[in-house]
Lab assay of single mutants.
Amino acid sequence: STHNELEKNRRAHLRLCLERLKVLIPLGPDCTRHTTLGLLNKAKAHIKKLE
């Protein structure tokens, strides 16, 4: 159905954006896999440090 396709595309776009963010944020050497929340929290902390 159309709704399923739209949802699939939305999730794919979100995944792509999170992958791009992961490249930009210093995550530390001990981190190989992150939850979305963990990645967003690290991004928030990094932005605050830059301010």
Rank of each mutant, 00 (worst) to 15 (best):
S1M: 01
S1N: 09
S1V: 07
S1I: 02
S1W: 00
S1H: 07
S1F: 10
T2F: 03
T2W: 01
T2Y: 10
T2D: 08
T2C: 05
T2H: 10
H3M: 13
H3Y: 10
H3G: 14
H3S: 12
H3N: 09
H3A: 10
H3E: 11
N4D: 09
N4F: 01
N4E: 09
N4K: 09
N4M: 07
N4Q: 12
E5G: 07
E5L: 05
E5V: 06
E5Q: 08
E5P: 09
E5H: 05
E5Y: 10
E5C: 00
L6A: 09
L6P: 15
L6Q: 14
L6I: 08
L6R: 14
L6K: 10
E7D: 08
E7T: 04
E7F: 07
E7S: 12
K8E: 07
K8H: 08
K8R: 06
K8L: 08
K8I: 04
K8D: 03
K8A: 05
K8F: 08
N9K: 13
N9S: 04
R10E: 01
R10N: 09
R10K: 15
R10T: 15
R10M: 08
R10S: 08
R11L: 10
R11H: 09
R11K: 14
R11I: 07
R11T: 06
R11Q: 07
R11E: 03
R11N: 04
A12P: 10
A12M: 08
A12F: 01
A12R: 06
A12H: 02
A12G: 10
A12W: 08
H13I: 04
H13V: 06
H13E: 08
H13M: 09
H13D: 03
H13W: 06
L14T: 05
L14H: 09
L14A: 08
R15Q: 05
R15A: 08
R15D: 01
L16Y: 07
L16E: 13
L16P: 09
L16D: 11
L16V: 11
L16Q: 13
L16K: 12
L16F: 08
C17E: 02
C17Y: 07
C17R: 01
C17T: 02
C17H: 02
C17M: 13
C17D: 01
L18A: 07
L18M: 05
L18W: 14
L18R: 02
L18Y: 06
L18E: 00
E19H: 08
E19P: 05
E19I: 05
E19N: 14
E19D: 07
E19F: 02
E19V: 00
E19T: 04
R20G: 01
R20K: 13
R20D: 00
R20I: 00
R20F: 00
R20M: 00
R20A: 02
R20L: 00
R20N: 06
L21P: 00
L21Y: 01
L21H: 06
L21W: 03
L21M: 05
L21N: 00
L21V: 02
L21S: 00
L21Q: 04
K22H: 02
K22I: 00
K22V: 00
K22T: 01
K22R: 09
K22M: 01
V23N: 15
V23S: 15
V23I: 08
V23L: 13
V23W: 12
V23Y: 10
V23M: 12
V23H: 15
L24T: 04
L24R: 12
L24G: 04
I25Y: 06
I25R: 04
I25K: 00
I25F: 09
I25E: 05
I25M: 08
P26W: 04
P26D: 06
P26L: 06
P26Y: 02
P26Q: 13
P26A: 15
P26E: 09
P26M: 12
L27A: 11
L27D: 04
L27G: 14
L27E: 05
G28P: 11
G28M: 12
G28L: 09
G28S: 11
G28V: 14
G28E: 05
G28W: 14
G28I: 15
G28H: 09
P29S: 15
P29M: 15
P29V: 15
P29H: 14
P29C: 14
P29G: 10
P29A: 15
D30P: 13
D30C: 10
D30A: 13
D30E: 09
D30W: 12
D30N: 14
C31Q: 12
C31S: 14
C31I: 13
C31K: 15
C31G: 12
T32P: 06
T32R: 09
T32E: 06
T32N: 05
T32Y: 09
T32S: 10
R33L: 05
R33T: 03
R33W: 10
R33A: 06
R33V: 06
H34G: 13
H34Y: 05
H34I: 08
H34C: 10
H34L: 12
H34T: 10
H34R: 14
H34S: 12
H34F: 14
T35Y: 15
T35M: 15
T35Q: 09
T35R: 14
T35F: 14
T35G: 11
T36S: 09
T36E: 04
T36A: 13
T36W: 14
T36N: 09
T36K: 10
T36P: 10
L37N: 06
L37R: 14
L37F: 13
L37W: 13
L37E: 06
L37K: 12
G38Y: 03
G38K: 12
L39P: 03
L39I: 10
L39Y: 03
L39Q: 00
L39T: 04
L39K: 00
L39N: 00
L40H: 00
L40I: 11
L40G: 02
L40P: 00
L40S: 00
L40T: 02
L40W: 15
N41F: 02
N41P: 05
N41K: 13
N41A: 08
N41Y: 01
N41G: 11
K42F: 07
K42S: 06
K42N: 03
K42E: 01
K42R: 10
A43D: 02
A43L: 04
A43E: 03
A43W: 06
A43V: 11
K44E: 03
K44Y: 08
A45H: 09
A45G: 05
A45F: 06
A45E: 09
A45C: 07
A45Q: 13
A45W: 04
A45L: 10
H46S: 14
H46Q: 15
H46D: 00
H46L: 11
H46E: 04
H46W: 14
H46P: 03
H46I: 07
I47N: 02
I47C: 04
I47A: 03
I47H: 00
I47P: 00
I47K: 01
K48A: 02
K48L: 01
K48Q: 04
K48Y: 12
K48I: 06
K49H: 00
K49S: 07
K49T: 02
K49L: 05
K49A: 05
K49R: 11
K49W: 11
K49D: 00
K49V: 03
L50K: 06
L50V: 03
L50P: 06
L50E: 02
L50Q: 05
E51H: 15
E51W: 11
E51F: 15
